[in-house]
Design a protein around this nucleic acid. Structure first.
Length: 530
RNA sequence: GCGCUCGUAGUUCAAUGGAUAGAGCGUCAGCCUCCGAAGCUGGAAAUGUGGGUUCGACUCCCGCCGAGCGCACCA
């Protein structure tokens, strides 16, 4: 409904005598700072000043004259250097806050499906903590996109071909025989456990295959327990079955992007100026084996061929060097460069006992996502990961997380949900189950709470445009704070004032619904008791 | 060396180029005969550093300091 309001205001302004015919910017507003006492703030006049060549404050004053005529605006004030502060009518706030719709109608056609790929960790060990950040980010984005009406799928690319499969086979075989894996093999203790579980009659040549399938199952369970849902687990081996890398290579060659040098086949990733890498890359080694990169080009081609028009790849910062070559590949395949959207998230900096924990599967010593979930809890982890913008670095102190989980604001938010539920329970015991709206005069705390509710959808939009769920966690904490303040001042259940009781129950219900939805989008539970 | 990312209260995180930089946890002072005190009210407390752009800079540009990551015919 905020968009509707923006349009309304824009139309009123542009059709007024003062502004008629002028080149005017669109109306955008933000929540007014507390000290202004207003509800909404516009910097429109300052933006308009550039094209109108008049003083911003004067424009703001003229705009206010127009805005005051709008019925649901109770006050409009121009403030130096050119802000316009609006105060909305209470009834209008109630109406806006009562609107439950989240979907954007323009997205509902589903003609531009988005595919978000994330985690895609090698199936050579359990998932570690770093995967948690990508998983949280990807899953949250998928859920938010869908809530707004976008057609959005998620995929985990399972790297079940290539030489790490062989390396895994050698490593697990060594463990089975009670030996140390080779230097460059996988040394994690999980392979010892896996070797013990291996069926006695399993032929030796199947050790590697079996181990990998077991590890994939483990990863799938990890993701499920982390409340992360994937539309598909896409196997690299399926690409090879249909000769996809070979076909991708042919396409690139037809487009004139490949050449041979020193016995290998290269991709001319520096060929064009539009999408450029800093050097050319090998597609087929001189021994004839395709590189990982070629398979990945084939995978991305496959995504386009399946009809996805936007490919989002969520990558850890340790893979950011990979982006330019993939962009070049997308370009060479004939797709618009901006249809490929990489999101780079910085790595999680883990500390335990005051020391940094290095994360490497080959080294064998790392903290698994499973361990983190078991010791800290899925809700805490999901909220924590979701609340940081992707390209910022992130600290995670295991000791702190284990013993002082209360530090996480997730409890602050969840508590609102539990509190409201217990009010509903008490209300139901008194026979009050219907509360269709707000009919009483608003207290300041009620007003602030309803006003906050209005922003929910805009926050989701911000998450989509910034490709990060952290705006949502910030919003939920703020909403929770306003609710707690409301709860403290405004007693909900009052037997002597049924009308007020119902109004406040309605507010509670709206808040609980938003909290629950918001938490759901980031994979966090909304408990009714805690 | 080159490239990418980041330096904000004690701490973990916020802030479409906007007004007096917001929160959680911690801390100090208060608040429960009443719907859950995992809460509320009020304090103390922050933009690494030096320039520039502009009406206005945490945000954009340049230098410096510091941190993480990358620079394979590995994935």
């Amino acid at each position: 409904m905020l968009e509707q309001l923006k349009k309304n205001i824009f139309i009123k302004l542009t059709s007024s005598d003062y502004f008629k015919g002028a080149q005017l910017p669109p109306v955008e507003f933000s929540a007014a700072p507390a000290h202004t006492g207003a509800d909404l703030s516009l910097n429109w006049a300052m933006a308009a000043a550039k094209t109108m060549r008049r003083a911003p404050l004067q424009i703001a004053q003229e705009a206010c004259k127009v805005l005051r005529e709008i019925t649901f605006i109770s006050e409009a004030e121009a403030v130096a250097p050119g802000f316009i502060n609006l105060k909305l009518d209470d009834a209008f706030i109630i109406k806006m806050a009562s609107d439950r719709r989240i979907k954007d109608s323009q997205n509902e056609s589903g003609t531009h499906p988005i595919l978000i790929e994330f985690v895609s960790a090698n199936p050579t060990g359990p998932l570690h903590v770093a995967s948690g950040r990508g998983a949280s980010l990807g899953d949250s984005l998928v859920k938010i996109h869908r809530a707004l009406g976008y057609a959005c799928d998620s995929e985990y690319y399972v790297n079940d071909a290539g030489n790490q499969a062989e390396l895994l086979a050698v490593s697990v075989k060594a463990r089975k025989e009670g030996k140390e894996p080779p230097e460059n093999g996988y040394h994690g203790s999980y392979l010892i456990d896996l070797a013990k579980r291996m069926p006695a009659d399993l032929p030796e040549e199947q050790y590697g295959r079996w181990a990998m399938e077991e590890l994939i199952k483990t990863q799938q369970q990890d993701m499920k327990d982390f409340h992360v849902d994937f539309t598909r687990w896409f196997r690299e081996s399926d690409l090879h079955k249909e000769q996809a890398p070979k076909k991708a290579l042919e396409t690139l060659t037809q487009q004139g992007y490949t050449y041979e040098k020193e016995g290998a086949v290269w991709f001319g990733s520096t060929k064009d100026n539009e999408a450029q890498d800093d050097k050319d890359r090998v597609l087929v080694r001189k021994d004839g084996r395709p590189t990982y990169f070629l398979a990945d080009i084939a995978y991305h081609k496959n995504k386009y061929d399946r009809g996805y028009t936007t490919l989002v790849d969520i990558l850890g910062a340790d893979h950011h060097g990979y982006v330019p070559r993939m962009k070049a590949a997308v370009h060479a395949l004939g797709h618009a460069e901006n249809s490929f959207v990489p999101i780079i998230h910085q790595l999680v900096h883990l500390t335990e006992h005051g020391e940094q924990v290095k994360m490497s599967k080959r080294a064998g010593r790392f903290i698994t996502l499973r361990e983190l979930m078991d010791e800290v809890g899925t809700d805490v982890c999901r909220f924590f990961f979701a609340s940081r913008t992707p390209n910022a670095h992130m600290l995670f102190d295991m000791d702190l997380a284990k013993k002082r989980t209360n530090e996480n604001p997730v409890f602050y938010v969840q508590y609102v949900h539990a509190r409201i539920h217990s009010i509903f329970k008490a209300a139901a015991e008194k026979g009050i189950t219907e509360y269709p709206g707000v009919s009483t005069k608003l207290e300041p705390q009620e007003r602030a709470l309803l006003l906050k509710l209005i922003w929910f959808k805009q926050i989701l939009r911000n998450c989509v445009s910034d490709l990060s769920p952290h705006h949502l966690t910030t919003y939920l904490v703020e909403l929770a704070g306003l609710f707690h303040a409301f709860y403290d001042t405004c007693r909900v259940l009052d037997e002597n004032n049924l009308e007020q009781t119902k109004s406040r129950l309605f507010i509670c219900q709206r808040v609980a619904e938003r909290i629950k939805k918001g938490l759901e989008f980031i994979g966090v539970s909304a408990p009714e008791e805690m």
